[in-house]
Design a protein around this nucleic acid. Structure first.
Length: 421
RNA sequence: GGAGAGGUGGCCGAGUGGCCGAAGGCGACGGUUUGCUAAACCGUUGUACGGGCUAAUACCCGUACCGGGGGUUCAAAUCCCCCCCUCUCCGCCA
């Protein structure tokens, strides 16, 4: 959420930001409601001051044992008027808050303006492998090796789910543990295992609600949502809290399953596990002071990249254009790993700086040395998402004889296994 | 699921209708003392919103806030109702 005062003082910038993000947010209505609200407040606060003054007097008079019934009847009417204006204020404020929640974060100046087609590749690591044979897509490899089962998964849960089996399950588990170990032992993150169901306040705090409601699974009876990413519970861990500055920056690494309806993407990436409703992910979340957030953003990106480097997977880094960034992000890099079986780059991480956008929504602050409180900056990145990494490992390390060579970095996590066959 | 207790400022904790934005303590900040540190002593110390004045998030005024929402009252931290959360005990269960 943006600061209302900031919006008031920077109408041009905000309007431009909304446009860059391709958003429909109604800025004019917000400005109108804001003015109405302030006028009402001015009026009612003067009345309240009067009421407070008279009430105090009446207390004194009554304590002397004198009669106050006449004056008190008069004040009753006055109080009713106050109540009427107050309810108008509540009404206007609710409308205002609702519209405010729909205003996206403003893109950082370094972000290219435009749509998905304007994303820029800012880095490439490794290169496409020369196989000497036609590499198979992962769904064929999975079936041949019997390590993942899409048919049976759809029998128990419907389309868009997967079952890992045998060495496939082992590979999945190895990847999770490998990623966590790298981030915890080498990059200084503290591990978190969060709840996979969260309440509405948490979903609003990180900005998934109200805009992405359609894409979320919910348990309506309990008012809970299945998390689409560990970002939600981990960021909201500190909702309403104030960090001492000395505790920042705070780094968290969290494993979780993630649940996404992927509404509106039917017919896209339907084969295999490029886009599934439940997937595993290791998420990195940072809480930092505002001055350091862009420096921390670069470090975050390199922490996530490290995983693919250690696995020896060719990838590229894309700086997202304003219209392709998420609602809450100010700047975002996508890491895309190469899939030779599908011959395309697959997103495995979005590495975002939210500045104070989430912190303001979730009310996460820090107390500076000076004693002043201010909103922290929050950042997160997948470190990294499992299914597409799983795909990349299978497809990049497949051999002509049908076996998969296990990347060196994963072998210790698979009991020394060198090949999946 | 049943019974009970409780939720007050950065933290702990007093406060059952007006003189309570809220005692006291801790912490933090400033100062005195001090070779340094510690201790002691003195002082300061909530947030949000609106308005005024501004270079200013400095200052002044006002309003609101004692888990959240509603009600009673001239007046609510305090009384009433609903909800949420925490703790203890019992039951059920992985």
């Amino acid at each position: 959420m943006l600061d209302l005062k900031f919006i008031r003082d920077n109408v041009g910038k905000v309007r431009e930001g909304i446009k860059k993000k391709n958003s429909q947010a109604d800025l004019d209505e917000i400005l109108k409601l804001d003015e109405t609200r302030r006028n009402l407040l001015k009026e009612v606060e003067v009345m309240k001051a009067e009421r407070n003054r008279v009430s105090k007097e009446l207390g004194v008079i009554k304590s002397r044992g004198e009669d106050i019934s006449g004056k008190s009847a008069e004040m009753k009417m006055f109080s009713q008027k106050i109540k009427d204006i107050d309810s108008e204020v509540v009404d206007v404020t609710q409308k205002l808050d609702c519209l405010m929640l729909a205003i996206p974060n403003i893109p950082n100046e370094a972000v290219p303006v435009g749509l998905e087609t304007d994303n820029k590749t800012v880095k490439e690591w490794g290169k496409k492998k020369d196989f000497g044979f036609k590499p198979l897509p992962h769904w064929e490899l999975c079936e041949k090796l019997d390590i993942a089962d899409f048919k049976r998964a759809s029998k128990v849960s419907g389309t868009g789910f997967v079952v890992f089996k045998g060495n496939g399950a082992l590979l999945e588990r190895a990847l999770i543990n490998f990623m966590l170990d790298v981030h915890i032992k080498e990059h200084g993150y503290k591990e978190i295992i969060p709840p996979f169901l969260v309440n509405e306040a948490s979903m609003t705090g990180t900005g998934q609600l109200p805009n992405l409601k359609e894409d979320m699974y919910s348990v309506d009876k309990e008012g809970l949502y299945l998390i689409p990413t560990a970002e939600v519970p981990v960021t909201n861990l500190y909702a309403g809290e104030i960090f001492p500055e000395a505790e920042l920056p705070l780094y968290h690494a969290a494993f979780s399953a993630c649940f996404r309806k992927e509404a509106g993407s039917y017919g896209k990436d339907t084969r295999g596990m490029k886009r599934i409703h439940q997937f595993d992910k290791v998420e990195l979340v940072k809480f930092v002071v505002p001055e350091s957030s862009y420096e921390e953003h670069e470090k975050l990106l390199s922490d996530a990249e490290k995983i693919l480097q250690k696995l020896g997977l060719h990838y590229r880094v894309r700086l997202l254009a304003s219209g392709d960034m998420s609602f809450a992000a100010a700047k975002c890099y996508d890491i895309e790993v190469y899939s030779p079986g599908c011959n395309e780059y697959l997103e495995v991480s979005s590495c975002s700086n939210f500045e104070d956008f989430q912190a303001r929504r979730a009310n996460i602050r820090y107390r500076a040395q000076s004693g002043k409180t201010a909103y922290v900056h929050t950042l997160n990145a997948s470190g990294v998402a499992l299914p597409r990494t799983f795909i990349a490992v299978l497809e990049n390390f497949q051999m002509e004889d049908g076996r998969i060579a296990v990347p060196e970095a994963l072998r210790p996590y698979m009991g020394g296994m060198a090949y999946i066959d």
